[in-house]
Amino acid sequence: MDKKTHYPAGAWLALIAALSFSMKAIFVKLAYHWPIEAVTLLTLRMAFSLPFFAAVGLCESRRAQPLSSRQWLIVVLLGLLGYYGASIFDFVGLRYISASLERLVLFSYPALTLVFGAVFFAQRIGRREAGAMLLCYAGIAAAFAHDLRLAQDMSAVWIGGGFVFASSVCYAAYLAGGGRLIPILGASRFSAFALLVSTGATLLHFLLTQSLQALHQPWQIYALALAMAMFSTVLPVFALAAAIRRIGPGRASLISTAGPVMTIGLSWAVLGEPISFWQWIGTALVVAGVLLVSRK
Rank of each mutant, 00 (worst) to 15 (best):
M1G: 02
Y7H: 07
A9R: 03
A11V: 12
S20R: 02
K24A: 12
I36C: 12
L44V: 06
F52K: 00
A55M: 12
A64I: 00
V75A: 10
S87Y: 10
Y96I: 02
Y96P: 02
S98T: 10
S100N: 05
L101C: 00
F107S: 10
F107K: 06
S108C: 12
S108H: 05
L112F: 01
T113K: 03
G117S: 06
F120P: 00
E129A: 14
G131V: 05
M133K: 02
L134F: 14
Y137L: 15
H146L: 00
S155G: 05
A156V: 04
A156L: 13
G162W: 13
A166R: 04
G177I: 10
G177R: 11
G179H: 05
I182R: 07
R189T: 04
F190G: 00
H205P: 05
Q210R: 15
S211I: 10
Q213V: 10
A214G: 14
W219H: 08
Q220A: 15
L235V: 08
L235G: 05
P236H: 08
A239L: 11
R245M: 06
G248S: 04
I255T: 04
T257G: 07
G259S: 14
W268V: 09
S276H: 13
F277Q: 07
Q279E: 09
G282P: 08
T283W: 06
G289S: 08
K296E: 06
